[in-house]
Design a protein around this nucleic acid. Structure first.
Lengths: 321, 321
DNA sequence: TTGTAGGCGTTATCAA
DNA sequence: TTGATAACGCCTACAA
């Protein structure tokens, strides 16, 4: 393997000079060109492991998400990668399956791997970030706020729930059910709260029978529809997340249930195949969320920010599918 | 930061002994228990960077894919992660956007990062693997075969195209169009070849007007449908990939085009919302592909395999959506 | 501006 | 079985 010393030999300079050139620290012009020539001739490229060990941190960012199969989080990953790779960082994606145990394991690995920073959509209310923080590693929390002094990028989830419901109310629907996620998932709780408030403000009763809490997966949405029996007289549904939205739509397509005509989904449905005009979507932009989070993380890595910052992203407005 | 030396001090042994315990090399029982106690007391965990430097490779696997937004590749990622994490490895996902330049950059990073191995779905016919291979790093190619002496896990793409077409022929369709990917993507070419052969074997003409080559994205499928003018008298479509399949279905849902009723998609449509019975799917199992590839990679890391191996995965049979 | 040399934390060799 | 010590490849005081 070719090392920095080989380059130094060939260029007739010291390893320190080679290192300087590689790191953009000014050296005499002819030294620099000899070094660059030697690098090219040997096809040398730096060992990032050694570099990380010496510098005490790597050029890796960890992105910790609860479900990498969810297009929302792959969108986030794209956004993170866009800005990270421009800045010379690579992204390690860690999938926690909504399991706090897997989450802490990955956070421990991130710490031991000396990653430069972590972007996390927490699976637990209190992700195990203390080790990382103690070592001065930077962290940005996305999607689900936590009670720690770290940067966050989130949506106004209450407002999303309120607006999604309002869209259906404006269409004239009245008996609007809400399909949301588990009580342990803050986004699910807040969006459902928004639904309830919008219903209340419209003077409509929103009993618990038409609020379904299911796992934030396609199957959850399907199960919710099954449990919403015909007797409940629903004429519309708010799905508070993209996957349950897919489940709801699948269920409706299959059973051709009569009576339900309005659906509003919070999120994005890039792979749905329902006729465009049949579903309202309160569009979220995960790629933007990832990009914003990554930029905040890089600023912090460069020491450019002080107190914890909170960014609230807006939905990009309702659209048909 | 707590180092191995701190543990050694507290346990009253040498760093070498601590290292042995950590690595499962037998030491005297009481040394071992003292070490373990010290580790627990200090909350010590190994610095993976230093370990990687010394051992000349990390516990990271790189997974290089052309499009992480594609649920097929997130499925692969799940499969890789399932087996990798059981074996103590983490997975870095690298997204090449089908761009050979991004691909070589990531492969160079993988090399410099001393990853233990690479699983790659190539974006180019000749991915830049020589550096990795020269350094003795192991590689498994998935989804798209390349002309290099490395392990591969692929589908029999010709057969997939043939079978997808046969399914529609059995249903009585005759004018079956094929929507496939670019000529530079081997899976696209092979599956289209299978389509053509199946049509030929059924004594049906398959002219170039009804073979559409588009990018392997949702938009590609939509564009293909638009360019398939009514005059072409199509009564069915084979979509050779999941994303173009989604595009085809979206297009059909929106235009309510008359005449086309049969659709067969090669892949998987986890997020489609079309009525189940309206589309045939020749189901692929990306998670299995990832799992198999990861197992092969780990075997090779452990030096348990010699000549290049080739695994051919089967479709799990046609199903409605 | 440049070079020498020490150290980042771990593992592996070698001698005890 | 154990311990002392020399690497692994790089970066960065410090000295020249």
């Amino acid at each position: 393997m070719t090392r920095i010393a080989d380059v130094a030999n060939l260029a007739g300079v010291s390893t320190a000079t080679v290192s300087r050139v590689l790191n953009g620290i000014p050296v005499r012009g002819d030294s620099e060109s000899r070094v660059r020539a030697a690098v090219a001739e040997l096809g040398y490229s730096r060992d990032r492991t050694a570099r990380s060990l010496r510098r005490r941190h790597s050029e890796l960012l960890a992105l910790v998400v609860p479900d990498i199969s969810n297009p929302f989080f792959t969108g986030v990953a794209r956004g993170v990668e866009d800005v990270a790779s421009d800045a010379g960082y690579s992204v390690v994606i860690c999938n926690t399956d909504e399991l706090p145990a897997k989450e802490s394991r990955y956070l421990q690995i991130a710490e031991d791997e000396n990653v430069a920073g972590v972007i996390i959509a927490p699976a637990s209310a209190e992700p195990a970030l203390t080790g990382l923080l103690r070592r001065g590693r930077v962290v940005v929390v996305i999607d689900r706020a936590v009670d720690l002094p770290v940067d966050e990028v989130i949506f106004d989830n209450y407002d999303l729930g309120y607006r999604a419901t309002s869209i259906l109310l404006e269409q004239g629907y009245r008996r609007i059910a809400c399909v949301t996620g588990p009580e342990t998932t803050p986004t699910a709780v807040e969006r459902a709260r928004g639904w309830k408030a919008a219903m209340g403000d419209a003077g409509i009763d929103a009993p618990d029978e038409i609020l379904k809490r299911v796992p934030f997966y396609v199957g959850g949405g399907r199960a919710a529809m099954e449990s919403l029996n015909e007797g409940s007289q629903i004429d519309a549904v708010v799905a508070t997340n993209n996957l349950v939205g897919v489940g709801v739509l699948q269920s409706l397509a299959e059973t051709e249930r009569t009576g339900i005509v309005g659906v509003c989904v919070i999120g994005d449905l890039p792979y749905s195949t329902t006729k465009t005009s049949q579903v309202h979507v309160l569009q979220l932009n995960p790629r933007e969320m990832g990009g914003v989070a990554a930029r905040m993380l890089l600023e912090r890595i460069d020491g450019l920010a002080d107190g914890p910052r909170s960014v609230r992203l807006a939905a990009t407005g309702p659209t048909a599918r």
